[in-house]
């Protein structure tokens, strides 16, 4: 009899907690929880940074151990690629100078209206089906929902949730991400995340020729600058009877192991 009462009261307690939770959810939405969360985050964020770095170091150590056999071949390949890129870089520098001179001549505005805010990664979202990365900069440092996150000219994602001293980035690999994209051969499509950290280029018309190794860029719009690199095509999935073809896109950097990222903020 007593056990039955206890169970009934347990149900009641959890229902009360649901109602209380709803009130707190509304309070947090209007920013009423910030005075509590802010000071606590100031204490916890340095701990998170430290722990996340330790975790990354351990993970890198074990990854290096497993990959040591391939490293020699990879090194030779990279040296060769490096030489080619140096030559290409020199050519691009010359073109950039020429471009700058032309812009000055016609009085066009130069890209870079936006400033960059550096942030450190401090953890992952506990929601397995979402691909979110947590960083140590938030509302009080000027971060806003929807801001674009990059590393050099590589698109990482957009700010998804903001706290006083911390934010979450919705990575390109998140299943809810949908971005208009274009390849280096001017083929348009939609990039979206898949379950399990994969990225896919979809809705590409069948006649267009997608090839592994093609780079995929942002097309611009929805506050995302044009020309940010999303990744390179790894595998093309073409089914003749389907209207569109698809391709798996591999990010140029491992998003799980990023330690510093840059947020594009309005100056």
């Amino acid at each position: 009899m007593r056990r039955l009462d206890l169970k009934r009261s347990l149900y009641k307690i959890f229902i009360v907690l649901i109602v209380v939770g709803f009130l707190f959810a509304v309070l947090e939405r209007v920013g009423a929880m910030d005075p509590i969360k802010g000071p606590v985050q100031q204490v916890t964020i340095p701990i998170q940074i430290g722990l996340f770095q330790v975790r990354n170091n351990i993970s890198n150590f074990f990854q290096t151990l497993t990959e040591v056999g391939d490293l020699r071949n990879k090194n030779l390949q990279l040296e060769e690629e490096n030489a080619l890129l140096k030559a290409e870089n020199q050519k691009l520098k010359e073109l950039s100078k020429e471009n700058q001179a032309l812009r000055e001549q016609i009085g066009a505005s130069i890209e870079g209206k936006q400033g960059l805010l550096v942030a450190k990664t401090i953890g992952f979202s506990p929601i397995v089906s979402k691909k979110l990365l947590i960083i140590d900069k938030g509302k009080l440092e000027g971060v806003e929902k929807g801001m674009v996150v990059v590393v050099r000219n590589i698109f990482i994602g957009r700010i998804y949730e903001v706290s006083p001293h911390s934010s979450s980035i919705q990575l390109v690999s998140d299943p809810d991400t949908k971005i208009a994209a274009i390849t280096d051969k001017n083929i348009r499509g939609i990039v979206s995340g898949q379950f399990g950290a994969e990225i896919e280029l979809r809705e590409v018309v069948q006649g267009k020729s997608l090839n592994p190794g093609d780079l995929v860029f942002t097309i611009g719009g929805s506050d995302i600058p044009r020309g940010l690199v999303i990744g390179e095509i790894k595998e093309v999935k073409k089914v003749e009877r389907e209207l569109f073809q698809r391709a798996t896109v591999k990010p140029l950097i491992e998003q799980d192991k990023l330690s510093n990222i840059f947020i594009l903020i309005d100056k």
Binding site: R29, V40, G138, V162
Partner: peptide, 9 residues
């Protein structure tokens, strides 16, 4: 909620 920016409620 503090560690992940998810709504506490």
């Amino acid at each position: 909620s503090i560690f992940t920016n998810i709504n506490f409620g």
